[in-house]
Design a protein around this nucleic acid. Structure first.
Lengths: 115, 115
DNA sequence: GCAACAGTGACACAACTGTGTTAATGTTTG
DNA sequence: CAAACATTAACACAGTTGTGTCACTGTTGC
């Protein structure tokens, strides 16, 4: 009893039908299909759609940024490398002579980045 | 003895000087400055630059995607909401009647998304 | 059976990203 | 002190994102 077609799902969630199709293309919200190919939005997808809207509104997040977060979740190796990079990037810059973290950094990156 | 100005840092890391300035603007690699305002790239920044290049090459990651990952790290609330969204988005769609996760989903989103 | 939907595909367009280049000015160095 | 760098600011430009609209065709509901 909560099976909406694209137009109704759109007005119900505040998107346009066009955008629902786009979100499917971007693999962000993928509805199932009827036999004849119509998109079917269940409660699950409606929730995703509303939540995604709030995400954008409250945090000014772009769709492709959410898509990238999804990619990070699907590709653990990528996630590891990105996190390593970020850790290196915001480690507080030391002032002491020959900070030990420098070589540590170097080896870490060599290990992780090595083809 | 590893204090390069922007031009040398560029040729040393495979970027253009222009791009090093852009990366600073985007807060991805921020060098310190001399008294007179010249950018100074130390080993730390050189490592970041090389690693960033490899990230892009190997995983086809965009700069702004890395910037977003950095933002996720800086804003834990945002990270929580995004992760919740993703979790809801790739929970395997059940086939049983009135899946329990639906209401769970709903309350979770209400809690997290509530203004 | 026809109006009101749905499907895909295409064209359009503003805004943004990433990048080069050029100009006008300041700094470092042989 | 002049050459070779650096600084910022601006203009330019192709590619991408997000979005609307329009055309043509297929499906559904009354």
């Amino acid at each position: 009893m909560e099976e909406l077609t694209v137009g109704r799902a759109a007005t119900r969630t505040g998107w346009s039908a066009r955008m629902l199709r786009y979100l499917e293309l971007e693999a962000l919200v993928v509805p199932r299909r009827t036999e004849s190919g119509y998109r079917v939005y269940d409660l699950r997808e409606l929730n995703q759609l509303r939540a995604l809207r709030e995400l954008r509104r409250r945090f000014r997040v772009e769709l492709r940024e959410v898509a990238f977060a999804a990619r990070l979740r699907r590709e653990p190796e990528l996630r590891a490398v990105v996190e390593t990079w970020l850790a290196g990037a915001d480690a507080a810059p030391e002032s002491g002579a020959t900070p030990a973290w420098v070589e540590w950094e170097q080896r870490k990156h060599e290990r992780l980045i090595a083809a």
